[in-house]
Design a protein around this nucleic acid. Structure first.
Lengths: 110, 110
DNA sequence: CCAAAGGGTTAGTTGACACTTACGTAAGAG
DNA sequence: CTCTTACGTAAGTGTCAACTAACCCTTTGG
């Protein structure tokens, strides 16, 4: 959940996600939509989104087609809905925040 | 929406939000939950959450009681739900632009 | 009035990250 | 094989933000 939330916290990545929400698009087609940013920047954003499980990649020759993983997004929203009301995991979250400060670069998902 | 998303993208702030989700808590009481971080840090997080409209502040003497604004959170989730499916008319243009570019590069290079 | 409790604010540091340019790599086309 | 297309990766840079330490407001009690 942490990776997905950090991913969509960046406006540019939300815009990318919206572009590939209802159909597959090649990396170049996505990059062409953002003239104020270089193509590698878009590629890096796509890598973050893929790492967070929010988009899926499919190869077609030299091209790479991206598509939003709407299922993961639905799961994220459902998880957010439950997050605040489930008091049982409060202590775990405090501990998690503690870990974040000490080992800032490492992340893992269950 | 941008401010709220950036606010909950930080694990520490999510933990704070959960603490004040179902109960009012004073700043000191919140800070006491996080032993690995200083009180001013919590105060700054609370300011960010308040700025994003996710928590409300109430003064009681010298103390300041915070509580999560559950309505704002519901609005955020609703806005997220709509975000991806709105503005879909642009996507067709993007797809057509890609097809046009493919045809042009295949037969004619400027 | 004065002092303490509660808590926000400022200055400065540090690490993460969104970007850039340059290079590397895989898959057709000629 | 060579060239081009389509993309990712590496290295470097600048900016932002999460943090700490020190300081500065309010409010209440004696």
């Amino acid at each position: 959940m942490d990776a997905a939330l950090r991913a969509i916290a960046v406006p540019r990545r939300r815009a990318i996600l919206r572009l590939v929400w209802s159909q597959e698009l090649a990396a170049a087609a996505i990059a062409d939509e953002f003239r104020d940013v270089s193509r590698p920047a878009i590629s890096q954003h796509l890598a973050v989104l893929k790492e967070a499980g929010l988009v899926s990649e499919r190869r077609d020759g030299t091209r790479r087609l991206y598509r939003a993983n709407t299922e993961s997004m639905a799961e994220l929203l459902a998880a957010l809905d439950d997050y605040w009301t489930s008091g049982l995991e409060r202590l775990r979250d405090v501990a998690e925040a503690e870990q974040t400060r000490k080992r800032q670069t490492k992340g893992h998902q269950p």
